[in-house]
Design a protein around this nucleic acid. Structure first.
Lengths: 105, 105
DNA sequence: ATATTATATCGTATATTTTCGATGAACGAT
DNA sequence: ATCGTTCATCGAAAATATACGATATAATAT
């Protein structure tokens, strides 16, 4: 965004927006679902299941890693990704709090 | 995104990503909080509370309206916005379902 | 040592988002 | 009828996101 004004908001609102941003692409939603459904979680396996190139998938993994929702562990020439349940649980809690603030239901 | 591939994902994943996208900016998080905290919800009141120009705020309102999280009602020369609790509750339910799928917690 | 495999990163093209000021449209008041 | 108020939209600029192929890196296998 042109001369981004994001720093003028609260840390809490920025964190919520950042978590939401990480989820704001169907490929990343799909990746999270795949990671939870499979025992194995090598990049190659993920790429196979997405209609995207390896480099693009790598970028989506990077974005999920950036906010801490997933972690990658190097395993020889491969990298094994998995969901960071702790961060994810925390993210869910933060989102729940938001909904409790904004939703009369 | 260059020649977007989003249509190659499921409707569910795209909807989840779309909801997340609407929340993926601190200004929009803030707007939802403001709308819930105030009885009055004219655009002017919202603009006052954000470090953004009127036209920029109008665009953020448009994005929230696009996914159905808020509604605007014309009231003379003013427009009164409010949260669409039905859509918001549905969005929360969809997000909860996602978390239940991807989170071991 | 070299080749193979797996993944990340770079460079680049295109699309989208964010922002603003200016303008337009709709309404109420004078 | 004109003026001020309120808000949406337009046009433009800059930033960010998405995507790909090519290349780099790192580990294993030969």
């Amino acid at each position: 965004m042109a001369f981004s004004k994001k720093e003028e908001f609260t840390k809490e609102d920025m964190r919520l927006a950042d978590i939401a941003k990480a989820l704001a692409h169907p490929a990343r939603i799909r990746i999270l679902k795949i990671l939870n459904s499979m025992n194995s979680c090598m990049v190659g396996n993920i790429v196979e299941q997405l209609p995207l190139s390896q480099s693009t998938v790598s970028q989506h993994l990077k974005e999920l890693k950036r906010v801490g929702l997933i972690e990658g562990e190097i395993d020889g020439p491969k990298v094994c990704y998995c969901i960071n349940n702790k961060t994810l649980a925390k993210a869910k809690k933060e989102m729940d709090k938001l909904y409790s603030i904004i939703c009369n239901c």
